[in-house]
Simulated scan of single mutants.
Amino acid sequence: MRPIRILFRRDFIHGFQLNFMKWILAGVVLVLIVLWAIWNRVDGENRGILILVNILEGYAPGEGENLKLPSDWLAIHIVFLYVIGQYTSEDFRVNGTYIFPRVRNPWRWWMSKILWTVLSVVLYYGLLLAVGFVLSLLLLPAILPVKGLEDFELLMVAVLLSSALTLLMGLLQTVLSLWFSTIMSFFVTLAVLLICCYVQSIWLPGDYGMLIRSPYLETRNLWDLTAAFLYFSVSCTGLAFAGHYVIRGKDVLPKSE
C-alpha cells in the first residue's frame, strides 16, 4: 500500500498543479450554470436545494413531447471531463519511463490514477454544492427545504447518482485516452452522454445516474438505489481492469529510430 500512497500523493499535488487553471475555469462555469438555473427556475421555486436537484436530476424524454437538450446536466459532466482531461495519458507518456521501473507493478500506478479521479469527483461536486448554496443564499429568499430533511435527502441522492455517473464517464474517458488520442476519447465519452439523454435502456448508465429516472423519486425508499449501486460498482470495476489491461499492453520505453 505504501507505493500507492506515495503515487497518490504525487498525483494529488502534481495533478492539481497541472490542472489548476482548469479548476478555476470549472468554478466559473459552475457559477454560470447555477445562475442560469436560478434565472430559469420554475415560478414559485425559491429554494436553493431544489434548484440544485433540478440541475442534477437529468432528463427523461416523455412520449409524444418534443425532445430538448438537458444543457445544465450535460454541462456538469462535460466540464468534469475537461478538467481531468489528458492528465493520466500524458503522465503515462511523459513520466512512465521513469515511474514504472520504480513502482514495478503498473497496477499501483493505475490504482493511484483511479483514486485521483475519485477524489476529483468528490472535490468537483463539493465545489458545485458550495457554489449552489452561496448563490442561493445571495439570490433566493430561501435555501432550506420546507419539508425538512426530505428534500435534503433528495439532493444527496441526486448528488450520489450524478457523481457516480460522472466517475464512470471519467474512468471511461481515461481508459480510452490510454488507447486512443485524448480528443477522440473525449468525443466518444460525450457521445455516450448524449445517447444516455435520449435512449432509456438498462444497459446505459443514464438510467441509473439520473434521479428523474430512478424509482426512488416516487418511492423515496433508499433500497431502490440498489440497482444503481450494483451497476456503477460493476462498471467502474470493469473499467479499472480494462485500464490495467491497456497499460500492461503498452510500451513506456521510447521506440528506437
Results as ranks from 00 to 15, higher is better:
I4C: 00
A142R: 13
F80K: 08
L161V: 08
R41E: 03
L230Q: 08
G44P: 00
L149S: 12
L119W: 15
S112H: 14
C196Q: 07
D91C: 00
V159M: 08
I99N: 00
R5T: 13
Y216L: 01
M21R: 12
W116P: 02
W107P: 02
N46Q: 09
L154Y: 01
G64H: 10
S112Q: 09
L56K: 06
L253I: 10
I202Q: 11
G44H: 01
G62I: 03
R41I: 03
R93F: 13
D11S: 12
S89M: 01
I84F: 08
V188R: 00
N40T: 04
W116S: 11
L140I: 05
S136C: 09
V131F: 05
V83C: 11
I202T: 14
K22F: 15
R9I: 14
Q173G: 10
P61T: 04
V134Y: 13
I38S: 01
I78K: 13
V199H: 10
T88D: 04
V28Q: 00
W39P: 00
N40G: 00
V34Q: 06
I6R: 11
P70M: 03
T97F: 08
V199R: 08
F241S: 07
F229C: 05
R220P: 12
V159L: 14
V157R: 00
G170R: 06
V79A: 06
P70C: 04
T117Q: 12
L144T: 12
T189W: 01
P3G: 01
K147Y: 07
L119K: 13
L194R: 02
A242S: 12
A191G: 03
T219D: 15
S185C: 09
I6D: 14
V246N: 08
K113I: 03
L194C: 07
N105S: 15
W39D: 05
R102F: 13
R5K: 12
R2I: 14
F80G: 04
K68C: 03
L137S: 10
T219C: 13
A142K: 13
K68N: 06
T219H: 13
T189K: 03
L52H: 04
G238C: 05
L225H: 02
Y125M: 09
L129N: 01
F187L: 11
E218S: 06
E218T: 06
V94D: 14
G85I: 07
L50H: 14
W39S: 01
F80Y: 15
I76L: 14
R47W: 12
S177C: 11
Y245C: 05
S177Q: 12
F133I: 11
N54P: 10
L217K: 07
I212A: 03
R47Y: 10
G62Y: 05
L204E: 01
I4G: 00
S89V: 02
G15W: 04
S214V: 07
E63C: 06
F20G: 07
L155Q: 03
L204R: 00
G126P: 11
F8M: 08
S163F: 08
L144M: 06
S71Y: 02
L50I: 11
N19G: 01
